[in-house]
Amino acid sequence: MKPPPFRYHAPRTLEEALDVLAADPSAKVLAGGQSLVPLLNMRLAAPSALVDINRVAGLDVLRVRDDGVRVGALARHARVERSAEAGAVQPLLRLALRHVAHPVIRNRGTVVGSLAHADPAAELPAVLALVGGTVEVASAAGRRTVRADAFFRGPLEPALEPGDLAVSAFFPALPPRTGAAFAETSRRHGDYALAGAAATVALDRDLRVTSARAAYLGVAATPLVLDLTGAAGPAGDWAAASAHVLERVEPEADIHASADYRRHLTGVLTARVLRAAAAGALRDLRKAEGC
């Protein structure tokens, strides 16, 4: 449980970091290290170098505006989780983050690091995918913005090329008259979920469902987003939506859960998060109307 040899860089500026990354295609970026360091210690990863970005100025932003939340590469889970402003603009951040491992891990681990790790069982990729967020990627060659649906290419396979650094992620705000919910089932508190779901439901003034969408973790190779508006219908038939989802998920078995059980959980969680999201939308609507 000791890592194989690697070079270590601790750049002070973004330019320096990008130069180092450009010069060494098999270098890995170290931010919170909560996934990378165990992989190194178990010798499951053997990068030539670690580029420790913890001293790079300007990467620790957490900027909350009406249109959404921008989270820099050094913003820790705990900081985002505790930000009331971020939670008000995009409640799913907070709802999901409390399921990410344990407080000590959230104190070190970063939101962008979790996205860049692209574990299909992780919470934040599903949230980014559901809300249509983006990842800002920089390299020595320039910057680009990658949409969530293009960012998660496969399990542990983000749309990052050698030399790339994910510098921030943007989570758009929850639209008006929309509620959000997150739920997962895990074996122990803080474990990766056996299955998890995030949902948003939007209502019109007549309390008809205008949008019902859900994203799933732990049941597919990448975060799975399903538009359930049609299946649920304007009256919000969550049973029908659940049935619709069961037709469309093909989870895999592992040592903790059979595929059948995961699929079953997906249905249970679908109904729960849609119902809860609808309730949130209803609250939002009533608040807006002052009743």
Binding site: A271, R272, A278, A279, L282
Partner: peptide
């Protein structure tokens, strides 16, 4: 259980809001 009445049924909604999981 939420399905039949749809979202307009306040009882179901508020329960759900407080406890989605």
């Amino acid at each position: 259980g939420g399905g039949a009445g749809g979202v307009a049924s306040a009882g179901i909604s508020e329960r759900g809001a407080s406890d989605p999981g």
